[in-house]
Design a binder for these strands. Structure first.
Lengths: 210, 210
DNA sequence: TGTTGTGAAGTATTTCACAGCC
DNA sequence: GGCTGTGAAATACTTCACAACA
């Protein structure tokens, strides 16, 4: 049904969904104009983004909030729950596991792995930390589909390979390297230092313009 | 000197710099081809990205590693140190403040603010947590230029406004809203749930292709 | 010879503008 | 009358291909 959807569109879809949370009247409607006002786009962009997936609006009226929300959730694949494991029980990963929106958006924390003997056996974010030796069994037994990879740079590629091999379907990677995985397994990279550098760049360049 | 540089280019520059860390021979050289192999691009893209800022290579030879590194650091604005405050002493912000690469890349943690009376006065990441009432004075007295905004959604806009008003030059925003700030103050958004949704989307859509 | 720097060509994404429908 | 859905136009970004040159 769908052709190739740009990454930028996906980010915006996620944003539209979040924007809809402002509207609580059950049968209310939004226009592309209103949706664009929140978010950082134009009405035309909103309509184009949505049009890749169907015709959800009514001409002259706009989009029904509840309907659009359901469509967006279905498009983004969060009209279901996802079973997620955290690999690397450091601060960032645990922060995500304890973040209320994480659960609220459809992601269930089902296991935590860390090789540190100080951490193995302790309880974090409500789960016992396990040694990674049991990782493959857990993926199978718990039906883990997503992995949050928050391990040191040196361990990331190995754990990513093991995850893919075990049948994990997607990886959220916090390590500052490009993981080498088969193209069928999507990887999203989060690189906080890179974001800071983009900031330094923007500030620095602002002085260089003529 | 420079025209408008796409965001994608900036991210890649940051990546090239990181890739150079693999090369330790002082006077060694890299070709655009080698740089492209790490990272996820083509040699032509590498050359084009760099060409926006000058001619750093030697035809027939490639780029001198140490020179290129210095140029990239200068372009990204990290050939200096930045004074950074954390607003919101939650797990994510503290994780970043304690992450070794944060300091190593030129960012100095100089203050932490949080309104929670349980946290005020305690020491986190080596700094005493202060109440946000003293924020403006601290920006002036400590020369704070960057703010890492890791507060709940409801408080983000207010603190962003105060930061801009106080003279902060850039904001790394973890709250899942678009901050309303003057266009001269760059904001980088980090939205972890959005990244997860991009992952769910990619996995879900993989089944829909014909 | 080997590899850069760069216009020109090719794609991808965004914006425009308006017909079509509520 | 108002607002969507969508081709066509405009703009942005990437890739090509080759002259320049160490």
């Amino acid at each position: 049904m769908t052709r190739k959807i740009p990454d930028s569109t996906v980010r915006r879809l996620s944003h539209y969904l979040r924007s809809l949370e402002g509207f609580q009247e059950p049968g209310g409607t939004v226009s592309s104009e209103e949706l664009a006002a929140r978010g950082q786009t134009t009405a035309a962009q909103v309509r184009k983004d949505l049009s890749h997936f169907g015709s959800f609006g009514k001409r002259g009226l706009g989009y029904r909030v509840d309907e659009l929300r359901a469509h967006l959730r279905s498009i983004l694949g969060i009209d279901r729950r996802w079973r997620v494991a955290l690999v690397g029980a450091g601060r960032i990963g645990l922060a995500l596991f304890e973040y209320p929106a994480f659960r609220a958006r459809g992601y269930d924390c089902v296991a935590i792995f860390d090789p540190d003997p100080e951490k193995v056996g302790t309880v974090r974010a409500g789960l016992v930390v396990h040694d990674p030796s049991g990782f493959e069994d857990a993926v199978r037994d718990l039906g883990i589909e997503l992995v949050i990879l928050a391990v040191p740079e040196g361990a990331a590629q190995e754990m990513a390979g093991r995850a893919v091999e075990a049948g994990v379907k997607g990886i959220l990677n916090f390590a500052p390297i490009r993981l080498n995985v088969p193209p069928l397994v999507p990887v999203e990279d989060v690189n906080l230092v890179m974001e800071l550098e983009a900031l330094s760049f923007a500030i620095t360049q602002a002085g260089h313009e003529e």
